[in-house]
Write a protein that binds this DNA or RNA. Structure first.
Lengths: 204, 204
DNA sequence: GACAAACTTGACGGGTGCGTCATCTTGGCC
DNA sequence: GGCCAAGATGACGCACCCGTCAAGTTTGTC
């Protein structure tokens, strides 16, 4: 995505591998111990590298955590947002975003574990690249859809919060089902919000 | 609630005060640094006590954290559950529980901060006294209400998850409003779920 | 006021993590 | 094969935290 596509020289190859090993170990450790309790040594222990090597790749645990989030959470956000913005109808808006999101979750449950375990830390210390921003984006899209007449009037801040909270908790249940029930969860969330929006629009 | 009501002897008084000071400092520290990153020393520093004194009251940070949760989260859970079980109608069921919950949040926002910051830790390491259990209880109550005919048929696991996720995230927005908008949040959540349940019941 | 029990204090030993750096190893190149 | 630069290694110094405990202080009692 960023490196020159040719030149898989031997040196470059180990470098990529080491970086990947650190990231993989870090994902495991952060999901397991939580960001706060984890240390650089815990991460290094999950690789075949020496402790000093870590610092050739990242300055500290915060940087690894950031890299982990940025490389993957951004993708989920972009995906759901694209689904929402491509939507022509209210049903598309809701169903498309949930389908994209739940599909992503099912495809990368480890990432979800990481985020779930560290949601509190992420929203207080790493607000930018993640969930807080997701909600802000959703809220923005909701307002735009209301202005365009796609969606009935409502409290966009609460609605965005409810949609994200639901996505999160229903997502937890979904990945636990075997097989991961993407269609069922999407259907459930979509009907819930379409029904809810309808009722909120008609009364008060 | 547990100590003999009489006998506020001088000794007993300091004891209570010390315990309270530790708990207060701990709430602050855990909400701030997160459970994992916090240490016993961080807590002690927030009091006027010496480090050794801490261990006269709690064996380690885990015990303080447990005490903190048990003394307050249990209350919120009991409150919402009582509201649900007293409900005679569907509307009561949803509105009563949300009103109880949002009211509690507004009354003790610091507790909410603590839980929010450490939700991941709580659900993985302290599942028993807290949110995981809350969801299980709600699911149980939903099934009972469906059996009793108060609520239309639906996927109770997803519904419980959605209701809790919504409570959580809408709660965050609610406490940020000034004044804390208990009635508005309750109205919103109630209408959302009544509408959603209706639609989920009628289709598929 | 004197005494014992209850409690507090903070220094201590043991342990661990952090980030660095001198040294060794490996890959690229002629 | 020989040389140099890039990179890996892990021991080191420093800092900090944990849980304990001997010594000091406060409280209750006679």
């Amino acid at each position: 995505m960023s490196a020159p596509p040719a030149a898989p020289s031997r040196r470059e190859a180990t470098k990529q591998a080491n970086r990947a090993a650190i990231l993989a170990a870090a994902r495991e450790v952060f999901a397991d111990l939580g960001y706060g309790a984890a240390g650089v040594r815990d991460i290094v222990r999950g690789t075949a590298l020496a402790s000093g090597t870590f610092y050739n790749y990242f300055p500290d645990k915060e940087a690894v955590f950031r890299a982990l989030l940025e490389e993957s959470v951004a993708e989920a956000r972009a995906l759901t947002r694209a689904a929402r913005q491509a939507a022509g109808s209210l049903e598309d808006f809701v169903a498309g975003a949930y389908r994209a999101y739940f599909g992503f979750l099912a495809a990368d449950p480890q990432l979800f574990d990481l985020v779930r375990r560290n949601a509190g830390t992420i929203s207080t210390q790493f607000a930018e690249p993640s969930f807080g921003l997701s909600i802000a984006e959703l809220e923005e899209d909701l307002r735009a859809a209301v202005a365009a007449g796609t969606i009935p009037e409502h409290d966009a801040a609460y609605m965005a919060a409810a949609m994200v909270g639901t996505a999160f908790e229903v997502g937890v249940r979904m990945v636990q089902r075997d097989p991961p029930d993407v269609a069922g969860a999407t259907h459930f969330a979509t009907e819930l919000f379409l029904g809810g929006m309808g009722r909120l629009a008609s009364r008060s």
